[in-house]
Structure formats: C-alpha cells, structure tokens
C-alpha cells in the first residue's frame, strides 16, 4: 500500500489519490484543485487548521506538531 509522501495517509482506494491518479505519490488532501501538490507552507497551514478544527489544540501547539510530523515525511525531509 502506498503512503502519501506529504501527509503520511495510507492510500488504498483510487479516490484517496490526488486527482484519482494511482501513479501519484500524494493524496487527495495534499493536492491543489488543479491536481498539483501543495507547497510546504500550504500543507503546514492546512494540517495545522485540521488539527485545531478536529482535535481542538492550541494553534501554536498544533503548528509545532504539524511541523514535526511533516519533517518525517519524504516530501519534506531535508
């Protein structure tokens, strides 16, 4: 099973992949409306917003957690 290089989500179904394209290495949530992959800043913002909205963490803490999680993913590893 492929894992999204930008957020770590496991991708199984075609609809999990960006633009429904199973050859892509990133998921539907990491794609822009035109199908290209979001930038680091866009992803960091959307992941922070997601954590705040669904888990209620403080915005700064959520941002730090998102940064740390992203640092371990292939798309953003330095």
């Amino acid at each position: 099973m492929k894992t999204c290089i930008a957020c770590g989500m496991p991708m199984e179904k075609t609809s999990d992949f960006a633009a429904g394209d199973v050859n892509k290495d990133y998921c539907v949530y990491c794609a822009r409306p035109d199908g290209t992959m979001q930038s680091y800043d866009e992803k960091l913002d959307s992941m922070t917003e997601f954590i705040v909205r669904t888990q209620g963490l403080d915005k700064k803490a959520a941002n730090e957690a998102a940064k740390s999680m992203m640092a371990r993913l292939p798309a953003w590893k330095v």
């Binding site: 997601f50 669904t54 999680m69």
Partner: peptide
C-alpha cells in the same frame, strides 16, 4: 500520538 489521533479525527 497526535498523528495516531489525526487518523481518527479526520
């Protein structure tokens, strides 16, 4: 831990 929670919160 936050990563595990995110899978479900999503």
């Amino acid at each position: 831990v936050i990563m595990i929670q995110s899978a479900i919160s999503h």
